[in-house]
Amino acid sequence: MAVFSDCDSTGTNIKLSGHVTLVYGKLLDKNTYIGLGGNQGDMITLSPNYKYDGKPFYSYTEKGVKVYKKFRGFYKPKGYLIKEEDKLNANDEYATIKDANAKLKQKTQDTSKGESSR
């Protein structure tokens, strides 16, 4: 799991809210991880929108205020032992988010340009 905190644009004013995503894979061309979500438009979603370099990044605007996020780290449940099959390998690397969606073979939406409204 990857954990992100909401923050200001400088990343110094960390808020109590944030976001958690499951790491599904990695994009080759961007060296970016792909997050797996399930609460966007009632669909399973794959998103490369999250930056994992620790620098704040713009996430969305709420009530006219820009919300930024900052990567806090990768976490696992307490007591869970990481197995070899849990680790990312060459089978988890994709040229594009579209390729990752094709492998998932589920009804998904590409959120690389933000969530779409229905």
Score class of each variant (00 low, 15 high):
Lys78Pro: 03
Thr21Phe: 01
Glu85Trp: 04
Tyr58Phe: 14
Tyr94Asn: 01
Asp6Ile: 00
Asn89Ile: 08
Ser117Met: 10
Phe74Asp: 03
Leu22Gln: 11
Asp110Asn: 15
Asn39Trp: 03
Pro48Asn: 15
Ile44Thr: 15
Phe71Arg: 01
Ser9Thr: 13
Lys69Ser: 00
Asp92His: 14
Phe57Leu: 04
Thr21Gln: 06
Lys55Asn: 14
Tyr80Thr: 05
Lys15Glu: 14
Asp8Val: 04
Asn101Ser: 10
Ala102Leu: 11
Lys83His: 08
Lys63Ser: 13
Ile14Asn: 03
Val65Leu: 07
Gly64Asn: 10
Gln106Phe: 10
Glu115Gly: 11
Thr10Leu: 13
Gly11Val: 11
Lys26Ala: 05
His19Trp: 01
Phe71Gln: 02
Ser116Thr: 13
Ser17His: 06
Gly41Trp: 02
Lys26Ile: 10
Lys15Pro: 02
Cys7Ile: 01
Leu81Cys: 11
Thr12Met: 11
Lys83Ile: 05
Tyr94Ser: 03
Ile82Lys: 07
Asp8Met: 04
Glu115Val: 15
Pro77Val: 04
Asp6Asn: 15
Lys26Ser: 02
Asp8Gln: 07
Lys98Asp: 15
Gln40Ser: 12
Thr21Asp: 00
Tyr68Gln: 00
Asp110Glu: 06
Val20Lys: 11
Lys98Ile: 15
Tyr94Met: 09
Gly54Gln: 08
Asn31Leu: 09
Phe74Met: 14
Asp99Tyr: 05
Tyr24Trp: 10
Lys87Gln: 13
Leu36Tyr: 06
Glu62Phe: 04
Phe4Asn: 00
Asp92Asn: 15
Lys26Met: 13
Asn31Gly: 12
Val20Leu: 09
